[in-house]
Simulated assay, not measured.
Amino acid sequence: MWAFLDGEFVEEKDRHIKLENRGLTFADGLFEVIRTIESKILFFEDHFSRMQKSAIHFDIDLPYCSEYIKNAAHELIKKNGIEDGELYLELTRGTDLHRDHRYPPKRTPSTFFMLALPLRHIDRENWKKGVKLLTYPDLRHKLCEHKTINLLPNVLAKNYAYSNGGYEALMYREERNYRYVTEGGSSNYFMVKDGVLHTPEIDNILPGITREKVTKIIHGLGYELHERRVGLEEFLTADEVFLVSTVSRVMPVHSIDDVHFDAPGTITLKVQEAYEKIFFSFL
């Protein structure tokens, strides 16, 4: 398998990243996951723009422009023969031989690499029948609006869900005995109550690309949508719940812990159908 590393295409045997790279020693970096379908790259500009904004925020040099990386991505997909899959982009602050917590000198080059990976398997029935969520406390830092590679809390949440028969974790924070939903290990959430949709506001959660697209779809369909702090109890008493992500697209939810829903609900199905039209329009 080929990879794109610091401006060059390299085969697996030639991939060399120093063990002192700050991505390994400090999780000091950013990443993006982008869906590909029949060699088409979905929403590339949205994903790359998010990485650029976070790179500026954290003062990490991103030495390539969008067009250059998009062209490299197409070439990488062709080299690996993966038409339906995922692009993984990672940017780190580079190699620091002294492993100093402070930023290395400005002249230190950053590290950028890109992988073209096979698509993770999802049972097709999940989109028809829905999936199970398990609640899990949100243990993360205060920088969740950026897609950093510091993902241990997300890994713990997702693994807890998988290990207990769930598809994804429904993470929540607690403040003055009030528990409110944030997001999933790699998903954003929407709920429906009395024909009105609600989704957690962007308050230390990731502004998901799919979330943004779905928000526009909901408005386009003429539904009322509130972006606000949504209580966990509200999700547990909702009429419909669905999750969205790059890989899961629009996924109905049939249960949260021991609470069950009819899935897919009427509104969920309409949003799902509208998103699928956009998704397959790339073909």
Rank of each mutant, 00 (worst) to 15 (best):
T148M: 11
I256F: 01
R249Y: 02
E83P: 01
G195T: 09
L30H: 02
I37N: 11
P200Q: 05
V131P: 00
G220Y: 10
N80A: 07
S281I: 02
S187M: 05
D61E: 14
T246E: 06
Y172A: 03
V196P: 03
Y88W: 07
Y68H: 15
L206P: 03
N150K: 09
S54I: 02
G208F: 02
G185K: 02
I218K: 10
E227K: 12
R15H: 07
I217P: 00
N126L: 07
E125S: 14
Y136E: 04
G265D: 01
D239R: 05
E11A: 11
F43L: 14
Y103R: 15
K216V: 01
D6H: 06
G195A: 11
S245N: 08
G220S: 12
N204Q: 03
P109M: 09
V250Q: 00
V131L: 02
A27G: 15
M191V: 01
R124Y: 13
Y172V: 07
V247N: 10
G222T: 12
M51W: 03
K18I: 10
K277A: 11
R107G: 10
F31A: 03
R102F: 14
P105Q: 08
G130S: 06
L152E: 04
F26G: 11
I218P: 03
G220D: 09
E83A: 14
I122D: 05
E145I: 06
K18Y: 13
S39L: 05
K13L: 13
K132S: 04
D203A: 13
T210R: 04
K193I: 04
M171K: 01
E183F: 07
R140G: 07
T266H: 15
R229E: 14
E212R: 15
E276M: 14
E168Y: 00
D59R: 15
R140C: 11
F282E: 06
S163I: 04
L143K: 14
T266N: 13
H98K: 15
R179C: 09
R15V: 15
H121Y: 15
T135Q: 00
A116Y: 03
V253I: 10
V241H: 03
I267H: 02
P104M: 09
N126F: 15
S163P: 11
L236A: 02
E75Y: 03
T266C: 10
T92G: 07
E12I: 13
S281C: 06
F58Y: 15
L134S: 01
G195S: 08
L117I: 10
V250Y: 02
T266G: 09
E175F: 13
R173E: 10
F58A: 01
H47E: 05
K53V: 08
E145F: 12
I77W: 02
G231L: 09
I205Q: 00
L19W: 09
M114N: 05
K142G: 13
G23I: 02
H74L: 07
